[in-house]
């Protein structure tokens, strides 16, 4: 009996003093291997594929904002050679048409942006153009949101707000099949 009591008194514990060292070791490993790079990019929704050729829809030409990017990365916006720096403003003016001009869209709901590129267009230029067009819509949504709700537009808005804004100014960007120019070998 005396023996058990002495055993009870002696606390049988694993020495946890080295726990911190082990944890440190792991910590340093993860510190070194970590790359905190958040994945960012422009999210798009592609149109579903259909094997039949799409119906030819005749749009009023005032409602179509055509952007062509050729294999030399030059921009042709509604038949005019345009610099990419002007693209955003022109797109915004086309969509919202604040002065009710005859040659711009009748209503943001009817506005269509048509984007077409060559196979030889550089991806950099394509994304830059896409970015400007997206920016035009983002800025218009922001304006609309400030007007309606008094807060800037963001992705964290309630879905109902976002839907209301996107009903008013839907983003319609149609991409044509690229033409076979300037494909490198």
């Amino acid at each position: 009996m005396a023996r058990t009591s002495s055993r009870d008194r002696m606390k049988n514990e694993i020495n946890a003093g080295s726990m911190a060292d082990i944890a440190f070791l792991l910590l340093i490993f993860f510190l070194v291997t970590t790359t905190i790079d958040v994945d960012k990019g422009i999210t798009v929704k592609l149109p579903p594929w259909s094997d039949e050729a799409p119906e030819v829809q005749q749009m009023k030409s005032r409602n179509v904002f055509s952007v062509l990017v050729n294999a030399q990365d030059q921009l042709l916006v509604r038949g005019e050679l345009t610099d990419i720096l002007d693209l955003r403003e022109r797109a915004k003016e086309f969509i919202s048409n604040p002065q009710r001009r005859e040659d711009l869209s009748t209503d943001p709901k009817n506005a269509i942006i048509s984007l077409k590129n060559d196979r030889g267009t550089s991806y950099k230029q394509y994304l830059a153009v896409y970015n400007e067009l997206k920016a035009a819509y983002d800025e218009l949504w922001d304006q609309e949101c400030k007007k309606l709700y008094g807060i800037p537009y963001s992705d964290d808005l309630p879905t109902a707000y976002k839907r209301a804004i996107k009903d008013k100014i839907p983003m319609v960007l149609s991409e044509a099949e690229p033409t076979n120019f300037g494909e490198e070998n």
């Binding site: 994945d39 960012k40 990019g41 422009i42 999210t43 798009v44 929704k45 592609l46 149109p47 579903p48 594929w49 994304l127 896409y130 970015n131």
Partner: peptide, 10 residues
């Protein structure tokens, strides 16, 4: 049928 696409960018 993979329609959600993100063009990664900096």
């Amino acid at each position: 049928g993979q329609l959600k696409v993100n063009y990664s960018a900096r």
